[in-house]
Write a protein that binds this DNA or RNA. Structure first.
Length: 560
RNA sequence: GCGCCCGUAGCUCAGUGGAUAGAGUACUUGGCUUCGAACCAAGGGGUCGUAGGUUCAAAUCCUGCCGGGCGUACCA
């Protein structure tokens, strides 16, 4: 409907002024109408006419030609055209579907990416939940969606942890690991990582030992060693981490990952590729290391294989990109990480572009800000001053208990997911354990509550609520609610096109406010001749709210 | 130093070329014998960091400056 009107007005512009122009309808403030366009303002220059004169001419033509759809056209302000639809047209708009802009495409979405042996902190929780929401949007737009989880099971951080683990165990004694209770494992590993990091920074002898351990891990993978005491320790604690991640994902009720790719799996391909491309001159040797000279591309020069002969993250990322390309031949590959990796990723992609342009050009790096504690200090798992993923969930639970409401697990998840999703992706997220997760105001629980109220009405009603007659004359509050409901499709299309879930949050909150206000001021059950219409609106509203919340990975239970 | 990003109400954030800049929170006030008050209604609170520029129109685009974050070769 919106598109039809846009095209019709564009045709009028061509007709009357002989100017080809794209017409975009926006949703103005309610006082102005249902749709508005600034096309007359933009036509002022090419026609050399006063914008209000242009608007007046178009308004008359719209009245003549679109009168069956549009009830009223007015010209306001500097030359806006404001359109008010017939009530029946508004009802027709309910039939619109979200366009499947990625129909037939294969899209990879990589997110979460926790490293084994390191704690899951608030940032991981953020990327996991927002990544889940983005993957849902991609899927909603019609793409075959592959959710990928990439993690560093080799590399210096593994050497750091293993060194501290072996020190704690008093040597290479894998049998002693059985003494650590399952519930204590994440905290135990976290403590080892902090110890190892401190030793690496403060103790030169320890640093040398750690680097040696790091090298042994690569050799272990090359040899396929699962039996030596060292290997037993490695594989055991590695599995602890994976089990722990899986448990958290299950608790979070995110869509399961289609594939977990550990770094060790893609490292050989990365090394092979970099070695080959070194001969072809894409990479060069410098100070004993293999580097990509990004300066020539306006980027940084970065090391791909260090002077020890070990691959860095850069080389592993090349292996990852090529593995994704070989296995999926994707139309688009979306990678979601913190924005500290933005320029790093540009270098990696610039390097890949030299020998594999297609996957490089189809890769879209989406970055988000840091999760920070209120007060501004950056969380660091090295320093141990982190808020873990679990602690955030616990803080939400405590906030509910403090209010005396005893929220369900669904509501806790709604609070956390919504608190993260409602901010535009890109900026830092300030996390305040006490205040950021509240169960009132612009929050997930508010939306769940608003939804449950509506369901409760429907349950109490006996009348049929399946259809909204197209010949109804709506009362003001009814129409306001209907108008808001019809915005849903436009909002979801914008969110899926831009990969910005927060647009949906903003809309759903406005929708719920519109409904709550309607509900507060208008009787539904027992409202006589309005009852049937109002029940239909409540049903439409509840369905819209539920669909929108589920698109964000948030449940909409019938009862709280 | 250079590169990228950011600066909107006390706090947390929407708004990224269009009409009087909006929410939540906090503060003040009113509303439950009536469909679920985790709600609703009303009020105060803004040099949109700053100075220029482009435009009929700038929080939004461009430039300088101030303030902050991140990156800047063998971490990820």
């Amino acid at each position: 409907m919106k598109q039809e009107i846009e095209q019709a007005i564009a045709a009028m512009c061509k007709d009357v002024f002989d100017v080809a122009v794209e017409v975009e309808l926006s949703r103005p403030d309610e006082q102005f109408g249902d749709y508005a366009t600034n096309v007359a303002l933009r036509l002022s220059k090419p026609t050399g006419l006063n914008p209000r004169a242009v608007a007046d001419q178009l308004a008359q033509k719209i009245r003549d030609e679109l009168g069956t759809k549009i009830a009223d056209v007015s010209v306001a302000g500097p030359g806006f055209l404001n359109l008010k639809l017939h009530d029946a047209t508004l009802v027709q708009e309910l039939g619109a579907n979200v366009s499947r802009s990625r129909d037939g495409q294969t899209v990879l979405v990589e997110y979460s990416d926790p490293n084994p042996l390191k704690p899951l902190h608030a940032g991981h929780l953020y990327t996991t939940l927002v990544g889940d929401a983005i993957a849902r949007l991609v899927e909603h737009s019609g793409a075959k969606t592959v959710r990928i989880n990439y993690g560093g099971d080799v590399g210096r951080h593994i050497g750091i942890s293993l060194w501290a683990i072996m020190r704690e165990l008093g040597g290479e004694h894998p049998e002693k690991l059985t003494e650590i209770a399952e519930a204590d494992r994440p905290a135990w590993l976290g403590a080892r990582y902090v110890e190892g990091t401190n030793a690496f920074e403060d103790d030169a002898a320890a640093k040398a030992e750690i680097l040696a351990v790091n090298k042994r891990v690569y050799q272990l993978h090359e040899a396929g060693d699962h039996d030596s005491p060292f290997a037993q320790i490695y594989w055991t604690v590695r599995q602890w981490s994976y089990d722990y991640f899986a448990e958290l994902y299950r608790q979070l009720k995110v869509v399961p990952f289609d594939r977990y790719i550990p770094e060790s799996e893609v490292t050989p391909l990365g090394v092979k590729t970099v070695t080959e491309q070194l001969e072809k001159g894409v990479f060069t040797k410098s100070d004993g290391a293999v580097v990509f000279e990004g300066d020539a591309h306006g980027l940084h020069t970065r090391v791909f294989i260090n002077s020890e002969g070990l691959p860095t993250y850069e080389t592993k990322d090349i292996g990852l990109s090529l593995t994704k390309w070989q296995d999926y031949h994707f139309d688009q590959s979306i990678i979601i990480t913190a924005n500290e990796q933005e320029q790093y990723m540009q270098v990696v992609l610039a390097a890949i572009k030299q020998f594999a342009p297609e996957p490089a050009e189809r890769t879209h790096h989406l970055t988000h800000g840091m999760v920070k504690l209120q007060g501004g200090s950056k969380m660091s798992s090295r320093k141990g001053n982190i808020v873990t993923a679990i602690e955030i969930l616990e803080a939400a639970r405590a906030a509910g208990a403090e209010m005396g409401t005893n929220p369900s697990e669904d509501t806790i998840l709604a609070a956390v997911k919504y608190a993260f999703a409602k901010n535009r992706i890109g900026g830092d997220i300030i996390y305040d354990p006490k205040e950021s997760i509240v169960l009132e105001g612009n929050s997930g629980p508010y939306l769940q509550y608003a939804h449950a109220r509506a369901r409760s009405i429907l349950q109490k009603a006996s009348a049929d609520t399946t259809s909204l007659p197209s010949d109804v004359a709506f009362e003001l509050d009814e129409r306001r609610l209907l108008r808001k409901i019809t915005e849903y499709v436009e909002v979801v299309e914008r969110a899926t096109n831009e990969l910005m879930p927060h647009h949906i949050c903003t809309y759903l909150y406005e929708l719920a406010q519109t409904f709550n206000s309607f509900y507060e001021h208008n009787r539904v059950i027992g409202s006589g001749d309005r009852e049937k219409v109002r029940l239909s609106l409540v049903k439409l509203y509840a369905d819209t709210l539920r669909t929108g919340l589920e698109l964000l990975g948030i449940t909409a239970p019938d009862h709280l």
